[in-house]
Design a protein around this nucleic acid. Structure first.
Length: 127
RNA sequence: GUCGCAGAUCGCUCUGUCGCCUUUCGGGGAGGAAAGUCCGGACAACACAGAGCACCGCACCGCCUAACCGGCGGGGCUCUUUCGAAAGAAAGGGUACAGAAAGUGUCACAGAAAAUGACCGCCGCACUCCGUUUUCGGGGUGCGGUAAGGGUGAAAACGUGCGGUAAGAGCGCACGACCGGGACGGGUAACCGCCACGGGGGAUAAACCUUGCGGGUUGAAAUGCCAUGUACACCUUGCAAAUGCGCGGCUCGCGCAGCUUCAUUCCGCUUCGGCGGGAGGAGGGCAAGGGGGGUAGGCAGCGCAGAUCCCGUUUCGUACGGGACCAGAUAAAUGACAGAGGCUUCGCGCAAGCGAAGUACAAAAUCCGGCUUAUAGAUCUGCGGCGGUU
RNA sequence: GGCUCCGUAGUUCAACGGAUAGAAUAUAAGUUUCCGGAACUUAAGAUAGUGGUUCGAUUCCACUCGGGGCUA
């Protein structure tokens, strides 16, 4: 058993505005508190993709007014994704590529342990 | 030492594990405000004969500056404190501070009157009534004169004194205050001092306005460039079919006929291989080469650069030399977690120390110069008060 | 990123620079009713904040805070 490398490079991020627009139009979603998960299967993966999943992380300005608070939450979510994404990769080893959006929906800042628990729940609920 | 005010500076550190962006592969990687976007520029594209009007902005003076509604210094006005009997002086703060003698507007309530000021009062004249019966005194009505006195008000038509008058009045005079243009002295100037002359006009321009000065417009999502494909306009060549007519909302689409084709279906004939006809579907070109616009996306603009800062020399305008600073992301990198330490406050303790809590505000988005706002805590300088020591 | 507009009771709107900021509706109390509704009477409730101009500011000016719209 080789230990997976917990990386998070540029090609693993979802950047295309058109794809993100499709994510909001026709997609599946569920809640793994404190995260809301929006995802979409793509038959043809984008050219920039090198991994089974491309992810975008979002924290709404409505709930967190200052950029400092939003940045810290996004970084914590990113770390949780980085350390747990291999579980989702194993689960979806022979299924199509997906675009994934993780939105932070709690009204206040929660400790990192809660975000980590939400990330594990997200992997369990993903089909 | 402590408290207050003003100014200036700094604004947590280290280790481990796992990561991110960038790179010339050595390395580098948020701020004093990166914020608000309130001013001014650099830079870029477009426009551009000259002048005027309109619109917007600015408004005491000098200097700094690439420039500014910025900074520094000065002047005027004004407020506070201290000293002083007062005049005034000192210190500190504020100041959008051109023009009210170009014109227009507004000035609530109160008050006689708020800008052509006569309500009461005072004075004169005429008529009349009463007392007195000589003069005179008092009242009423009318016509005039008068800004000395009057409750008001934010503001009341220069102030004090003398003269003057029927009563009064800058009506006249003296002194003083204010305004105007002028001489002299000081100052680069704003302005200040002083002298004589003239004047009598409330406030408000962050009301309209007038005067002077400035402003071409748009902003890095500007702008320039590259360009994937079983996508597309157009051109050439080749390929057995790929043409004609009509309609509509007419660079596009639809319908009908013809043409080509079919792992479809029906009928007829059949030597069971097929052939002919009808229905239905599909096709409005394809391939190769050229080639343009440009979507997704990418590159430049965008930083080892500079109106930057420091030091030294200098002919003190400046020039030269040396050094410092050194992010470059684009659905957004500059971190997450764990541990240790520092600092502040509180509690316990004689003390050493122990424990608990806190450690701000806020994150680049082309780049500079300012302004404004947020900010735990720390350091330095100056001034003042209080206490202690010498 | 740039440009631009707005902020008045809980809500929707008024108010030439002039008295104690007005109206509707909502809220509360009372009258009426067997009870409720409706009606009537009464009360409470606001100029986003700070500073300035002015005798006087919701109004004029500056800054701050909050919200909306336009543009690509």
């Amino acid at each position: 058993m080789n230990t997976p490398r917990h990386t998070f490079t540029r090609s693993e991020r979802l950047k295309s505005p058109t794809l993100i627009g499709r994510l909001f139009k026709d997609s599946h979603s569920y809640v793994a508190y404190p995260l809301r998960v929006v995802w979409l299967e793509l038959a043809v993966p984008p050219a920039t993709a090198t991994t089974p999943v491309q992810v975008v992380i979002s924290v709404p300005k409505r709930n967190f007014k200052t950029a400092v608070a939003r940045n810290r939450l996004k970084r914590q979510i990113r770390e949780a994704w980085r350390l747990h994404k291999h579980l989702l990769y194993e689960k979806r080893a022979d299924k199509p590529h997906i675009s994934l959006m993780l939105m932070y929906i709690a009204k206040e800042t929660l400790p990192y342990s809660d975000i980590e628990a939400g990330m594990q729940k997200m992997v369990r609920k993903m089909p």
